[in-house]
């Protein structure tokens, strides 16, 4: 059903008006979540979300909003309609980023302070496993077949491949300094890891014979921007596996990589310190959080142009859009 929607969305601008979806933005300094309407990009409301909300996600049925309240050492779960806090999940200390099993359960979260990935049953609200990983685990992704969870560790500079059946690390791949975020193409054939301080995006062949293998590195260059400020962080890939968008942090730009040619084709100017990205379900729009300008920028995905920026709370960090 959802695939059908995606396909319809991809057919372009002639489709009937897109469904309005709620866009949830975590505001790291404001301790709130801002809710936007993807129809008109108006702010619907802003609600308290605990101390230092960062990583944010939503259950596949769109009912539960998960927010890493980093300074509360917990994941807060909100009703996505009423914004009421329902319960918390035992995330372990300082949760930052997480990924959900495609079914919505379990949830895999990186605990930066303890060099652990914690696996949480979202229904029973219990810890299923704690997996020791490298120093300062951060980025989290799950392969579309749910076979592996990929965690990146910022000081160890590795992507760890955690087997979801026994929670053992099966493979490690070294990448560049301070790997921040990992993302698969929807078919699970390609995997990308951003390195904030290294200034690169590494491509890993996750299905290579003999285990996942580093096969390419993307570098960035913007005239007039000092190279050390080109810091890749959040990433998203279109469902057609064609376009990879990379938030470049303090460079205030989102890089566009054409995955059919593996070329960086454009840099879209957005707000300051662009951090995380999210598509609307129809993938017509990409939303960027801009931490230092306290706004989000809406990008027209097909045109690869920034449409507008909308003020949200203080220091927006993460963003997720409710499914249809």
């Amino acid at each position: 059903m959802r695939t059908l929607f995606l396909l319809l969305g991809c057919l372009g601008a002639f489709a009937t008006p897109a469904l309005a979806n709620k866009v949830f933005v975590s505001n790291e300094k404001g301790n709130t979540v801002t809710v936007l309407d993807s129809d008109n990009w108006e702010v619907l409301t802003e609600f308290n979300a605990g101390n230092r909300p960062r990583g944010i996600g939503i259950s596949p049925d769109g009912k539960h909003l998960y927010v890493c309240a980093s300074d509360d050492d917990t994941i807060r779960v909100f009703d996505a309609d009423s914004y009421e806090e329902l319960w918390t999940l035992p995330s372990g200390p300082d949760p930052e980023l997480f990924t959900l099993h495609p079914s919505g359960n379990p949830l895999y979260v990186a605990n930066e302070d303890d060099n652990l990935v914690t696996v949480i049953d979202t229904e029973k609200r219990t810890v299923l496993a704690e997996v020791p990983v490298g120093v300062e685990p951060e980025g989290m992704a799950i392969s579309p077949d749910a076979r592996f969870v990929v965690n990146t560790s910022e000081t160890t500079n590795m992507a760890h491949f955690i087997d979801t059946t026994d929670y053992e690390i099966k493979h490690n791949v070294l990448v560049d300094q301070r790997p921040r975020y990992a993302v698969y193409t929807d078919d699970g054939a390609r995997l990308f890891v951003s390195a904030e301080i290294g200034g690169t995006v590494s491509e890993i062949d996750p299905n290579a014979e003999g285990g996942p293998t580093l096969i390419n590195k993307f570098e960035f260059a913007v005239p007039g921007v000092e190279p050390e400020w080109l810091q890749p962080v959040g990433m998203k890939i279109t469902a057609d596996k064609r376009w990879l968008f990379v938030a470049l942090g303090p460079a205030n730009r989102v890089a566009v990589i054409d995955l059919s040619t593996d070329e960086v084709v454009d840099y879209i100017l957005v707000g300051q310190r662009v951090w995380q990205l999210a598509f609307t379900p129809d993938q017509k729009y990409l939303i960027t959080t801009n931490g230092n300008s306290n706004d989000v920028t809406i990008i027209d995905v097909a045109a690869q142009k920034a449409l507008k920026s909308v003020q949200v709370g203080q220091q927006p960090w993460g963003v997720v859009v409710a499914p249809n």
Binding site: H171, N172, L174, I204, G210, L214, I215, N216, K217, E219
Partner: peptide, 19 residues
Amino acid sequence: KPIAIICASLLLSFLVAMP
């Protein structure tokens, strides 16, 4: 240089896979 980096990286990932 990029080629050298990729080669070094390939070698490294090989080593990583098999300690």
